[in-house]
Amino acid sequence: MADRMKNNKISIFYKLQIFLAFAAVAAVLLPVFLNDSHWPVFARDYLEANGEEQTGAANIVSSIYLGYRAYDTLGETIVLLVAVSGTIGIISFTGKNLATGYNEDDFEGGNRKNRKRTVLMEVVTGKLGPVILIFGLYVMLFGHMSPGGGFQGGVVIASGIIFISLGTGGSENNILSHSGVLAKIEAVSFLLLVLASAIGLITGIGFFANPFNGNPIPPVGYIILLNAMIGLKVGAGIAYMSVAMLGDTDL
């Protein structure tokens, strides 16, 4: 009885605590969400007038995230790199500290590999994989003039690689979905990205400055270059993470 009373007491305290947190968040956010001031047009007008001329990209969103604010994009790529590398490190380290009965391989239906493969899926994914890869390359390389770009294209490429690995009966059967190859592509494209950001330092025009000025390569070349490197890095990284989660390889 006393125990129950104690529980009751705790739960009232707990409810009060939750209620307070909610009230505080709602009260703080309400004025910000309800603010009705007119959305600023300065940046839009400036970019509409000068964006394409200064960066060469018709897609103004691309011109911002690979031109005006490319440094943010470098940071974003690094977040992805750390997340991929950390996730693989964390999930591939199994076998230690397992609670009894909670090892994945103990469940019914055999090991992970068998559970995921059916003939239907192998045929469909195997045929679709290359098509998706080509689409991904298109999205990646035409990001400066159409919706898309390195991140979006990279994710599509990654799904193409996952399809190929599902379709060929194991990710180690195809060179594109081989975990070692993916790791190499990711590492090299990250190195190239860091070097590309520093081209301006070596040629003396400044960090992250566009080194192409029209002779012979037009300025948009820098955006395409960055898009390609980010696309390869993201594609290889996410595919690597997914292949690791499929559990075909010993990482």
Binding site: S85, A187, V188, F190, L191, V194, L195, S197, A198, L201
Partner: peptide, 26 residues
């Protein structure tokens, strides 16, 4: 442009990290 070299404390560790990743992959 030595002024721009204030980015060295950001770029050099990143470069180092990229090299280390390459070493691990290759």
């Amino acid at each position: 442009h030595s002024a721009e070299f204030v980015f060295a404390p950001v770029l050099l560790p990143l470069l180092g990290a990229a090299i280390v990743f390459c070493a691990k992959a290759f």
